[in-house]
Computed example of a mutant assay.
Amino acid sequence: MPRPHGFAYEQRRDGSVVLTHQGRAAGVLRGGRAGKFLAEVEAGDAQLVMARWTGAYRFGNERRARNHPRNRTGRT
């Protein structure tokens, strides 16, 4: 599975955190969620944490899921 890359975050003065992916806004965290995110980034792999928080953590498994028998209904 490829490693996530291209994520960045900026902590603002009001305590919110803006997440970006390749220069585009990917999410804004406020309050307790921002604090929890910052704690996770400090403790682990920052790119992996940001990918998980933005929901962009699925790399390579989409094709496999599409071919699963449960997901084939209606296809020939």
Score class of each variant (00 low, 15 high):
M1S: 06
R3F: 00
P4G: 06
H5Y: 02
H5F: 04
H5K: 07
H5S: 14
G6H: 00
F7T: 03
F7E: 08
F7A: 07
F7H: 12
E10K: 13
Q11G: 05
R12N: 10
R13N: 10
S16R: 15
V17W: 00
V18I: 12
T20S: 14
H21W: 12
H21V: 05
Q22S: 09
Q22N: 14
G23N: 10
G23K: 11
G23M: 07
G23L: 08
A25V: 12
A26W: 04
G27T: 05
G27F: 01
G27Y: 03
G27S: 06
V28M: 08
R30S: 10
R30C: 09
R30G: 02
R30K: 14
G31I: 09
G31M: 06
G31W: 06
G31F: 06
G32N: 11
G32P: 01
G32A: 14
G32K: 10
R33G: 07
R33E: 12
R33A: 15
G35P: 06
G35F: 03
K36Y: 07
K36R: 15
K36D: 15
F37H: 11
F37P: 02
E40C: 12
E40G: 03
V41I: 15
V41S: 12
V41R: 13
E42W: 06
E42M: 09
E42G: 10
A43S: 14
G44A: 15
G44N: 14
D45H: 06
Q47M: 13
L48W: 07
V49W: 04
M50N: 01
M50E: 02
R52F: 02
R52G: 04
R52S: 08
W53P: 04
T54P: 04
Y57G: 14
Y57L: 10
F59C: 06
F59L: 13
G60L: 08
N61S: 14
E62I: 10
E62Q: 14
E62P: 01
R63I: 04
R64C: 02
R64Q: 14
R66V: 09
R66I: 08
R66E: 11
N67F: 11
N67K: 12
N67I: 04
H68R: 13
H68V: 03
